[in-house]
């Protein structure tokens, strides 16, 4: 009994630490990456390669006063940032980093992650609504319609994969792809010839779900000032920021698990956590790359893309896979 509690505490602490460390150092990576892309050095003053920049930022954010705008809904205003961070951390609990490193392997792991991911949209809505700012309200309405419309193709794609593997346990999903790159879901097989397309859809949807450019309409700083976190300063803003990066890590992990064979080596040799980390950081790098390369879409362009292109294609893929699974 006590061992289970200890286990749980260790798991939660590890998840929080991993999320926080990732969030902090992804900010650094993003800024350095942006610097490289934009022909400038990026943060390079604090510590070697500017590696001490994230702690400095953290200290600055934590020591700043938390301002609550007059007329704001205090409860919602305070709850929203926590709600942005908490589901992200919760999702880490069930993500398998390797065969053994997983806090709690659940039979409904996929379902749980998507349930918590939907809560992220909630926090944006509460933040925008609670801060009594017109830009915030507009941004939160945008973000919610965006989250809803991108969850649909995302889930349809996941259903396709779950159907193929016959499980919702993330560990078993990876196990189903073990053995080398030819077994990964990314590679088209007889039963699912459209898998690369699904991968693309899922990738686009994770960009949209994490509110990353070119789908960062929730914070569209050139239109809506800072979107839903316009009124947030100090650690309230910090939590949103960390939540965003934690969500990116989860998105990248999900792509890795669902399509890229999790902790498996492309050649089937030495599977382990390093392969998992390598894959998610490569994906995160591509997220950063896309952010600093593309302009922002419009809200109607975004919704059109989801409802008119992604959902029909993913539905077709679902039907095709279902039919082919019956045949083969």
């Amino acid at each position: 009994m006590s061992l289970t509690i200890l286990n749980a505490v260790v798991a939660v602490v590890a998840a929080i630490a991993f999320a926080a460390a990732n969030a902090a150092y992804l900010v650094w990576a993003e800024r350095r990456g942006a610097g490289r892309i934009q022909r400038r050095p990026g943060p390079n003053v604090n510590g070697p390669l500017g590696l001490l920049q994230p702690p400095c930022d953290g200290i600055k954010l934590m020591t700043k006063q938390l301002m609550i705008p007059g007329g704001a809904d205090k409860a919602l205003f305070m709850v929203a940032p926590v709600l942005a961070m908490a589901p992200a951390i919760m999702s880490f609990v069930t993500i398998p980093f390797s065969e053994t490193i997983v806090a709690h392997s659940m039979n409904v792991g996929v379902l749980m992650i998507f349930a918590f991911a939907s809560l992220g949209g909630m926090s944006i809505l509460l933040a925008g609504w609670g801060s009594r700012n017109k830009y915030g309200v507009m941004a939160s309405v945008r973000a919610v319609s965006q989250n809803i419309s991108y969850e649909v193709p995302m889930l349809i794609t996941v259903i396709t994969i779950v159907m193929m593997a016959g499980t919702m346990n993330l560990k078993e999903l990876v196990a189903a792809q073990a053995g080398g790159i030819w077994n990964w879901n990314l590679i088209p097989s007889l039963s699912s010839p459209l898998m690369p397309v699904s991968f693309l859809i899922f990738f686009i949807c994770s960009l949209a779900e994490t509110n990353r450019a070119p789908f960062d309409l929730g914070e569209a700083e050139s239109e809506l000032v800072a979107g839903f976190h316009t009124e947030y300063g100090s650690m309230g803003f910090g939590l949103f920021f960390m939540g965003e990066y934690a969500n990116i890590v989860i998105g990248a992990s999900l792509i890795t698990i669902l399509f890229l064979g999790g902790w498996d080596c492309p050649l089937g040799l030495f599977p382990g956590v390093w392969w998992f980390l390598l894959k998610i950081y490569m994906l995160i790098f591509s997220f950063i790359w896309i952010r600093w390369t593309f302009p922002r879409t419009t809200i109607y362009g975004l919704l059109n893309l989801s409802w008119k292109i992604l959902i029909p294609i993913s539905l077709f893929n679902l039907l095709l896979t279902a039919g082919l699974l019956k045949v083969f």
């Binding site: 934009q38 400038r40 050139s222 600093w292 302009p295 922002r296």
Partner: peptide
């Protein structure tokens, strides 16, 4: 202008 559209990088190139 490209920054208005949400693309930051061209500004840095143009300024250089």
């Amino acid at each position: 202008f490209v920054m208005d559209l949400g693309g930051f990088t061209p500004l840095m190139y143009a300024i250089q």
